[in-house]
Structures are given as structure tokens and as C-alpha cells.
Design a protein around this nucleic acid. Sequence first.
DNA 1: TCCGCTGTAGAACAGTGTTCGTGTCTACTG
DNA 2: CAGTAGACACGAACACTGTTCTACAGCGGA
Lengths: 249, 249
Amino acid sequence: MSPNPQQRRAARHRLGTDQDAPAARRGPSGGRKKPITVDAIVSTAFGIVEREGYPALTMRRVAAVLETGPSSLYAHVVNKEDLDELLIGRLCAEIELPEPDPTAWRQQIAGVCTQLRDQYLRYPGITQASFAAAPSNLDTLRVGEGMLAILLAGGVQPQAAAWAIDSLSLYVNAYCLEHSMARGRLQDGGEGWVLSRAELLRRFAALPDSYPQTKRYAAELTAGTVHDRFDFTLGLMVDGLPRSGAADT
Amino acid sequence: MSPNPQQRRAARHRLGTDQDAPAARRGPSGGRKKPITVDAIVSTAFGIVEREGYPALTMRRVAAVLETGPSSLYAHVVNKEDLDELLIGRLCAEIELPEPDPTAWRQQIAGVCTQLRDQYLRYPGITQASFAAAPSNLDTLRVGEGMLAILLAGGVQPQAAAWAIDSLSLYVNAYCLEHSMARGRLQDGGEGWVLSRAELLRRFAALPDSYPQTKRYAAELTAGTVHDRFDFTLGLMVDGLPRSGAADT
DNA sequence: TCCGCTGTAGAACAGTGTTCGTGTCTACTG
DNA sequence: CAGTAGACACGAACACTGTTCTACAGCGGA
């Protein structure tokens, strides 16, 4: 048997109970010291993204690290899209989901989101892969399940909880995407659109008078760490959720 | 004088009051019926995105529509990134900003967000450009100014208003990006990850027992139009904003 | 008239993802 | 033990992408 990458990928989306069937790797071929496996590909891919950012993650780059040609990867991976999916799968698999505690559901849901954020930011730009990936992956569904459990334990109405998970995931993704984009813009170009706070304030002050509010509240607009904004928005979304009773914290 | 594209782009970010200086186009060169202008480039780019989606927007494609070679574009546009910026600039310029009405600030802010959403969705995938673009564009700042004015008129605390604008813009972008990604996934592949609601329900039902909440609340998770979710999240973010008094609507 | 300048192109370069055909080796089979 | 089937690896190539270099056209001013 030993499935093609296509079959393997389809299995990852079939959402069945079949447990991945290690397929009893035949003998590793020939003179290679280390045979090429899906896991090895994903690991080196993570290394590249962590060191050089997501745009540097090309098939050729991965192949080069593995000391082979690009075509060799296609025996284990359907696509670059497939590789992306594997990446975010492994990333989601490392998220720790707490046992739902009705008295601490806010902290718990924020904790999961923060974990996601930190994982995404650790591999800058990888959120692009997350946006492109279909949401029917088992690993991503696992964290969705965890978040749903937390919200339900907190007494959030099921419909609101379901939609809120979507919104939260989407926001975390977008936040990290923007973050990594800004970072990327910093380190290459650097021709002056480094956006330090002082610089931003100066620019806002130089705006024409048709931007009165922006000029007046420039301080507020540029205030806070980026992570302050993250916490603020999370609070906004979580605190507004309709609950069906239960005591508040 | 007649500025290079580089200078023109820098001017767009300088945020000064200088009014773009039409630069009195010298004679259009030679045998062309229609000379290539920045505006023509942007317009054809919009056409391509509207018809074929953002991934089809390549320099060569634009040049081909203009019946010329790719290199001709670089006399008017610094980069593809620059072209992207011009696109989202024009897109933002077409957003209508209402006169702030303290009694209708919720509807007004939702209206602006919905306008943005519909513009983005009209040109599928163009949000990618929006994420990549630097936020120091005059046109994008204009809608930021408008949103800020609405929120302040509604009595929202300045700091919260400032941060909320960021969050809202980010969410609208992310929503549209996800939407267009899903749309794109539909029309190419189509090998079965069409995610109709019935199909999703079937898949959730087939999940292993380690996903109890997802299985139980599959109906809620798949409920609602995509736009219902949009409205829900907007409400979540807007209703939670701290106000400094003023009567509620 | 001539010079210079601006805008238009063609060809080419360095990348990208992906596929085809071919080799090479292991592991099972007769 | 010999032989074959099949998985694996790989080099070369294709069709793209953004971008740059170079030369060419025609109009302005001197």
C-alpha cells in the first residue's frame, strides 16, 4: 500500500478515526544516510521559517537543506500548499488546551489565543499558510474543540460560542499576519518607513487640516505596545459574548 | 521635473499638503494611440482583479492588456508592491464617510465596515495587497479619520476608539481574505473540498469521539450566512467599547 | 538643424512551483 | 540463490513570476 502523498493528504481531511496507518515504511532507499520523510521535510521547513521567515520557505530551499533536488520532495508532499498545511497542522498540535474551568474561562480562552499568537510569531509569516489552508484539518479542529469547550463551560451561549471561535481565530491570524508583514518591511527596505512611534507622531502632526481627529488624537492612535492592542481586542470580543446565566468571575 | 515613480510614491507617504502636482505631461511619445499613465495602469489592474481575481494580477498581464511589454510599466510604477498600494488607495478613496451622527454611530461605523467589505469582495483577493501595504497611505488614513470621527461622536473613549479602529480594519481585512481564499479554493481544485453546509455537517458527524463539543454543536458551528458572522463579530467589537457618558441609542 | 530628454519596448536574468523520464536500491518471490 | 516489482531519488526541463539593462522612437527647447 504505502500511500501516495495525495492519499495521505486526503486522509488528513477525511476526518475519520483511522489512525494514520504508519504504512510500515519499506526499506529506506539506497545510499542516503538520512532518508527523506514527511517529518524531516516539515522539520527543516520549520527551521527555515524560524530563521529566515516564511517568504524564504521555497521547495528548492527545503530541498537544498536536505541535500537533494526539489523534485524529490514531491514524493512525500503533494504541493507547497500541502506543505503549508502540514506546517500549521504541527503548529496547532503543539497548542496546550486546558481543562475547562467555568470560573476562569476568560483567562483560559485568552491563554489559548496567546499561545496561538506566540507560535505564529515564532515562525514569522507562517500565518499566510494558515489563511490559505482549509479549515478541515484535524489538528486545527482540535484547538477549535478546545476553545469551544472553554466557552461552553463559561456559560456562553452555543451559537455565540461557535461564531466567536471563528472570529477569534481569524483575528489572531490577522494580527500575526500584520505583525510579520510590518517586521518584514522593517528589515528589508528600511528606506525610512521604519515606523517608530516618534516618527509616526511627527507624520501625523504634518497631516493637512482635513484630518483633524487623527491629528488631535495622534497620541492615542500610536499608544500602547502591539500586544496591548491584542489584549484589548480580545477583551472586546470575549466580554461581549452573551451568556446564559452562571455567575461572573 | 516630472517625478519618477519613486518620488511620486515617496510623496504619497510624506503626508504633506502638496497637491500631487500634475507635472504637465510632456508630449506623449510616438505612435501610441493611448499613452500609458498611472491611472490607466491602475484601472486595467482593477479590471483584471475583478474579472480573474488577485492571483491573476501580474505585471505581464497588465502590460498585455495595455498592449505593451512588462518593462514599460516600470516607468510609472515602482514595484508590484507600489501597484498594490495604488489599488488599495483608490479603493479606499471610494469609501463614503458619513457626517458623524451621535445617535446613529453604531449603524454608521457598521456601514463603513460593510462598505469596505463589499469593495474588497468585489475585487476578490485584493485584501492581500491591503495587508502588504504600509498603513501610511493618505487614502487609508482618510477612512481611519472618518471612523475615528464617528466613534468619538458616539462618545467612545478616545483610546478605545483609536484601538478599535485598528481592530475593526484588521478584522474586515481578514474576513475578506478568508472569504476570497475559500472562493478561490472552490473554483480551482474542486476535488471535494467544496464546503457546503451539508457536507460539513456530515464530516463533523464522522469525527472521532475526542471531539465531543464539535460533534454536538455542529449545527451552531455551521449556522448562518457568512455575512451573519460578519455582523455578529462587528457587533461584538462595537458594543463592548467603553463610552464616557452620552445616552445610548 | 541638432541635442537632450522622456516614455516605449525587447531581451534577458534570477527566481518560483511543478512534472517527466530515468536511474538506483530494497525487499519480496519463485 | 537469482530475478523481478516497486518505491524512492534525482537531474533536467517547462511555464511562470518580478525586475533590470539596453536600445529606440519622437517631441521639447536651443
